[in-house]
Design a protein around this nucleic acid. Sequence first.
DNA 1: CTTTATTATCGTATATTTGCGATATAAGAT
DNA 2: ATCTTATATCGCAAATATACGATAATAAAG
Lengths: 111, 111
Amino acid sequence: MAFNKKEEFTQKEQDLAGFAKAMAHPARIAILKVLAQRNECICGEIVESLPLAQSTVSQHLKELLNAGLISGSVDGPRSCYCINWKAFEKFNQEFNFLFANLKVKNEKACC
Amino acid sequence: MAFNKKEEFTQKEQDLAGFAKAMAHPARIAILKVLAQRNECICGEIVESLPLAQSTVSQHLKELLNAGLISGSVDGPRSCYCINWKAFEKFNQEFNFLFANLKVKNEKACC
DNA sequence: CTTTATTATCGTATATTTGCGATATAAGAT
DNA sequence: ATCTTATATCGCAAATATACGATAATAAAG
């Protein structure tokens, strides 16, 4: 039981879900907000602004990296993270495409 | 260990993360797509279009309900689910707000 | 009232996520 | 070379999520 059936869905569905998953934790939303507020690439200031241990924040950063939402240059002791704007744009489009579909149909919906 | 620290973030951060979480599974994306394609409120046709057991689909529907992404009228044997367009609009706005922030700052970003 | 069809819920097994402390790593400072 | 600072990774414990079969619940049909 509890087999992983995720591969049985289309690639687009998996991609969208993966993107959503990357944002599916308040800590990661907060990280993105921090990265958005400061326009220079900050490193461990993220840790200070979050109520989490450094190792946990590092883990969340890694997840955002893997999902392609941010990019980071690990320059020795202090690393530098930024929003990967391209990925955001791409997924925003896919979201809006879904939204568009929903909007049209919704007008005829019953509940 | 592994305490739930989610409450330590702002309500907006939690809401956005909750919305994302609801979409963080390809099955739930697929369900939303089905609901979008057919403009009448369908019930168990969702089950047929997914590679999952009925109970599993029901669970996913419940999650979408709890997150407020869909609304359902449980009319006896056959229930009826629809997109909750308002919630989508709300979160789309919050997303776009985040996007806007990112876009402005990103032009000065370094990596 | 009994049967049938549809959906929800329960119990359970497994997988994944979250979180921390401890430890490793890497480069600059002393 | 050693110390300091910043980050990443490992190992583990607890919490959540995923999935199914079995079972309950509900209302219409017979």
